[in-house]
Amino acid sequence: MKALEIKNLTIDYGKGAVLRDFSLEVAAGCAMQIQGPSGCGKSTLLHAICGLIPSPIQAEISGEILLFGRPVGQLSVAERAQKIGIVFQNPETQLFCDTVEDEIAFGLENICMPVEQMGARIAEMLALVGLEEFRHSSPKELSGGQKQRLVLAAVLALDPQILLLDEALSQLDEGGKMAMLRHLEALAGQGKTILAVDHDELGGKLWEKILEIS
């Protein structure tokens, strides 16, 4: 089954196409890495997959993006959040709650999860990324790597079928990077579809395909 299907995607911010006639197929459960230099359209590709283009990111877009056979533009915000999760490069711009617990609860509250189920889900996510002891701490007290793991937990709380990583490991030190890769390997083992973009090869054993774009 295809988790993601991109057909003849062209994106133009008004200064020439960033992506032209780009096509890609990602099977469900596959872990794929896309490499390329800065400005080659890696992040743009992920934004388009998330349905963030043409709104709120304004650009001309043509072609088709299907998530499990459905055009991304036809998905509601809730459906989209439960199909795709994205971790951006800078954790500082993704964390805004007072406590680690609140940060994970945020998405669950948005999809109206009953409060009785939330506690267990939060605990499960914290255990997944090894941040149980920080449950009541402020995200500001965490290291860069821990912050990025918290973002991962907050995204995974909604149980998305596809996980996108937009240079999510590039700001981390070696220890933080290794910890994130371990969590990603576990997720790949559980059958999650993972698509990561970065300048360089990310390392780790989970990647089934590595695609280079220029």
């Binding site: 915000v77 959040a81 439960q82 945020f106 948005n110």
Partner: peptide
């Protein structure tokens, strides 16, 4: 931040539960 919030289903429904 707005993109990150939207991808975590912010404004998905007219009301939301609260932990």
């Amino acid at each position: 931040l707005a993109m990150s919030m939207e991808m975590r289903a912010f404004r998905a429904k007219p009301s939301r539960t609260s932990f």
